[in-house]
Nucleic acid binder design. Structure first.
Ligand SMILES: Cc1cn([C@H]2C[C@H](O)[C@@H](COP(=O)(O)OP(=O)(O)OP(=O)(O)O)O2)c(=O)[nH]c1=O
Ligand SMILES: [Mg+2]
Length: 440
DNA sequence: GGGATACAACTCG
DNA sequence: TTCCACGAGTTGTATCCC
């Protein structure tokens, strides 16, 4: 039940796209996206976005970020020179502590498959290799091959917009089981080099090859060898080799696809590189933090040092120590074995439901699905969280912790039902529902 | 003051 | 024709209860 499509406001809203929405436009800091017509692509994206409920929500969030920035600037102006001075001293202490801890003795590789899901699909349908192709659905794409990227089509872009950018785009449905299979194959190879390798997702992993290197030189071989191994499938990977995980991760992206980067264990070279490296490309700095930092004039990692006092006063200790390590090119070089999972969840988006009974029927489905997943993974939970999203894309969560752990549908559903009842009372507007169960 | 608990916001792939 | 996913993790803040 979602009217409001007053077609009176006519379609020809000419190019008055509000002062560039930073949240919205094409993100080209991604492999395979250089030298394309960004203007044109952004126009198509905007033309298919402006006015939608999704867009309105994005605008709202943008406003919130701007408010945060405003507040930050006010705070900044209120600092006395004395405060700045002591903050600078404190920052220096932390920085020199980081510098003292710098350890260039390990060699870490980050390996990242190229266009992973798409590459697997191309393996099974080689005729797709020359064609623009993406994996996902009309609502959302998980990734695209490099041919499609030339059109501006990329991961996390809705399929229907991608189709506007590239009418010939072929969209292949997602096939997780296949990707899991291939992932297993690659991980077997990784374990030959480092049995304690750390798989970050289906398509990427960190390896500490320090010990392996003592036995055998594989700097160059690593890549060739991966290429050969995967050649039969036509799959390729990129790699970054460095003294720590942050640099290794940066490196694997620098020469994508089918490329690699080597950072020598040399302080000066690392500092020289990191100085001009954009903060946004560092893992952990997303769209929002980028904007917050940018409003302080911090765009490159080197800028962090210049603003160390202000950052100390404006951000949490956790954030600051992260920033400071960043600007010195330092990060962990220890690969933690991944422990127990912390949560398990299932969520679904569907066309708007406002009928109460239908809502509960949907909830029932989700509980069954969650219970099945929990059984398969052999886990139980003590906290259940219901997550909802309404037609305006507003998110809401409501959770309940209970003494006796939940293990199956019978124990989950009653709790979920309570949460949904409350949620319906709370927001008597129609909601498009999703459920998410967690366990902690 | 120090754990739980609840919830929003952010990030990643 | 369609009109922005889904699963997992972290951090920050508020609140309550020893
Ligand atoms: C970024 C992203 C990736 N994925 C999936 C699909 C990707 O193939 C897989 C790995 O992510 P990525 O490594 O980020 O992307 P990619 O491997 O497709 O392309 P490349 O590394 O060459 O730039 O994760 C999503 O489902 N949603 C996302 O938003
Ligand atoms: Mg990849």
């Amino acid at each position: 039940m979602d009217e409001s499509r007053k077609s009176g406001t006519n379609q020809l809203k000419p190019h008055n796209h509000p002062a560039q929405l930073t949240r919205m436009s094409l993100n080209d800091n991604k492999a395979g996206m250089q030298g394309l017509d960004k203007e044109k692509i952004n126009k198509i994206i905007m033309d298919n976005t402006v006015g939608s409920r999704f867009y309105k929500n994005e605008q709202k969030r943008e406003q919130q970020v701007n408010a945060r920035i405003q507040k930050m600037k006010e705070k900044l102006n209120s600092f006395t020179s004395n405060q700045i001075m002591t903050a600078k001293q404190h920052a220096e202490e932390i920085l020199s502590e980081v510098e003292n801890q710098r350890d260039l003795s390990r060699t870490i590789i980050h390996i990242d498959m190229d266009a992973f899901y798409a590459a697997v699909e191309e393996r099974d349908r080689p005729e797709l290799k020359q064609k623009p192709m993406a994996v996902g659905g009309m609502d959302m794409l998980s990734t695209s091959n490099y041919v499609a990227r030339k059109y501006g089509v990329r991961a996390a872009m809705p399929g229907f917009i991608a189709k506007k950018l590239c009418p010939n785009l072929i969209i292949v449905p997602t096939n997780f089981d296949k990707y899991r299979e291939v992932s297993k194959e690659t991980q077997e190879i990784f374990s030959e080099y480092d049995e304690n390798f750390c798989g970050m997702s289906l398509d990427e992993a960190f390896l500490d090859i320090t010990d392996h290197l003592q036995k055998r030189l594989i700097y160059d071989q690593q890549k060739k060898w991966l290429s050969i191994k995967f050649y039969k499938h036509g799959l390729f990977a990129s790699a970054g080799i460095a003294p720590n995980t942050m640099l290794a991760k940066i490196g694997s992206d620098l020469n994508k696809p089918n490329g690699q980067t080597f950072f020598a264990p040399n302080r000066d070279e690392i500092m020289k590189f990191i100085k001009d490296f954009p903060v946004r490309k560092v893992n952990g700095i997303g769209k929002v933090t980028e904007q917050l930092l940018s409003s302080l004039g911090v765009q490159k990692c080197g800028d962090i040092y210049e603003m160390r006092a202000e950052l100390m006063l404006l951000f949490s200790a956790t954030s600051c120590s992260f920033f400071f390590r960043m600007c010195l090119g330092c990060s962990s070089n220890i690969l933690e074995p991944d422990g127990e999972r912390k949560s398990i969840s299932t969520e679904r988006t569907f066309s708007t439901i406002s009928n109460r009974d239908e809502l509960f029927a949907k909830l029932d489905e989700l509980c069954h699905s969650l219970a099945a997943d929990m059984k398969k993974q052999n886990v139980q939970g003590k906290t259940l969280t219901l997550k909802t999203k309404n037609v305006d894309f507003q998110l809401h969560t409501r959770s309940k912790t209970i003494n006796v752990p939940m293990t199956n549908y019978q124990t989950i559903f009653p709790v979920a039902q309570e949460l949904l009842k409350q949620e319906i009372l709370n927001a008597n507007n129609k909601l498009s529902l999703r459920l998410m169960g967690k366990y902690q």
